[in-house]
C-alpha cells in the first residue's frame, strides 16, 4: 500500500538553533500519529513544516495526491499547495480564532471551503453546513450566528466542521484540546475519535497531553530538543517506554 505521507529528513533551523531535525516517518491511510513533547521540543515547528506553513531547510514531504500520485509538497507550487490546503488537507488550530472567520456566520464558515471549490447553490451549501453542525453537536439554530457568540468548545467544534466539510484525507491538529475545560475536552476528543473512524481520516496531532494521544493516536513520536527520541505504537511507547526522556515524561504524568 502507498503511504499517504512520506516524510524524509525534515529539518528547520533558526540560525544555529535547531527547530527540528532528522525527522523521518511514513503515515498510512487511516492512521493517527501523535507528536508529543514539552515546550520547545520542536513539535509545533515540525507540524508547521509538514503542513506547509513553514518552509523546511531540508527534507521532503511527499503526499499521495488524488490526481497525480505522490508529490513533494515542499517544492509544490503555491497555488497547488493552497488548493491542497482547502481540499485534501485540513488544519485544526489550537485557538479557534486562528482557524475561523469570526465575523462570518457559522454556516458561512463551514460553507467557505465548499464555495472555494466551486459550490454555487445556496440551498445546498446551507444544507451541508447544517448537516455538519449536527455532526459536531452544535444546534442547527445557530447556523446564522457568529462564532464570537460561541463558547470555546463550540468554536473548536465549528473549526473541525469547517475543516472536514470537504472530506480531507489528512488532518493536522495543533493542540486541539488546549485551553478547553476538562469536560469540554472529553466531548471534543470523543467527537474526534468518532469522526476519524467514520471518515477513515489520517491525522497528525501535536499535543503535550499524553491522555489525548492515548485516546486518539495509533502511533506516537516523542520529541525533545528538536529530535525524535522514540516512536512506535502508542500504547507500547506509553506503557513500555525505552528512551530515558520518554520514561521521564510518562512517569511525570499525575494520575487522578
Amino acid at each position: 500500500m502507498t503511504p499517504l505521507l512520506q516524510v524524509t529528513g525534515i529539518e528547520k533551523r533558526y540560525g544555529a538553533r535547531i527547530g527540528c531535525a532528522d525527522v523521518n516517518f511514513d503515515l498510512y491511510p487511516g492512521e493517527v500519529m501523535g507528536i508529543v513533547g514539552e515546550s520547545g521540543s520542536g513539535k509545533s515547528t515540525l507540524l508547521n513544516c509538514l503542513a506547509g506553513h513553514l518552509k523546511p531547510d531540508a527534507g521532503q514531504v511527499i503526499f499521495d495526491t488524488r490526481a497525480d500520485g505522490p508529490v513533494d509538497t515542499v517544492t509544490m507550487s503555491e497555488p497547488a499547495r493552497r488548493m491542497l490546503g482547502r481540499t485534501d488537507w485540513a488544519f485544526v488550530h489550537q485557538h479557534a480564532r486562528d482557524g475561523l472567520r469570526m465575523n462570518v456566520s457559522a454556516g458561512g464558515n463551514i460553507g467557505e471551503r465548499l464555495m472555494a471549490v466551486g459550490a454555487r447553490h445556496y440551498g445546498d451549501i446551507r444544507n451541508r453546513a447544517v448537516d455538519w453542525l449536527d455532526r459536531v453537536e452544535i444546534a442547527e439554530g445557530r447556523v446564522d450566528d457568529r462564532p464570537s457568540a460561541f463558547s470555546g468548545g463550540m468554536q473548536q467544534r465549528l473549526q473541525i466542521a469547517r475543516n472536514l466539510v470537504t472530506e480531507p484525507r489528512l488532518v493536522f491538529m495543533d493542540e486541539p484540546t488546549g485551553g478547553l475545560d476538562v469536560s469540554v475536552q472529553a466531548r471534543l476528543l470523543d467527537l474526534l475519535r468518532g469522526l476519524v473512524r467514520q471518515m477513515g481520516l489520517s491525522a497528525l496531532i501535536v499535543t503535550h497531553d499524553l491522555a489525548v494521544v492515548r485516546l486518539l493516536a495509533d502511533r506516537l513520536m516523542v520529541m525533545k530538543d528538536g529530535h525524535v527520541v522514540e516512536s512506535g505504537l502508542t500504547d507500547q511507547v506509553l506503557d513500555d517506554p525505552q528512551h530515558a526522556y520518554t520514561q521521564l515524561l510518562v512517569s511525570s504524568v499525575l494520575q487522578v
Binding site: E78, G107, G111, M115, R120, Y122, R126
Partner: peptide, 22 residues
C-alpha cells in the same frame, strides 16, 4: 493580492451567502 493572483474567490461568495442568510 494572493487571492486575485490565484483566482481564489470563494470568500466573495461567502459575502453573498451571508447576505442571503441575514
Amino acid at each position: 493580492r494572493k487571492m486575485h493572483s490565484l483566482e481564489e474567490y470563494g470568500l466573495m461568495h461567502v459575502k453573498l451567502y451571508e447576505d442571503i442568510s441575514q
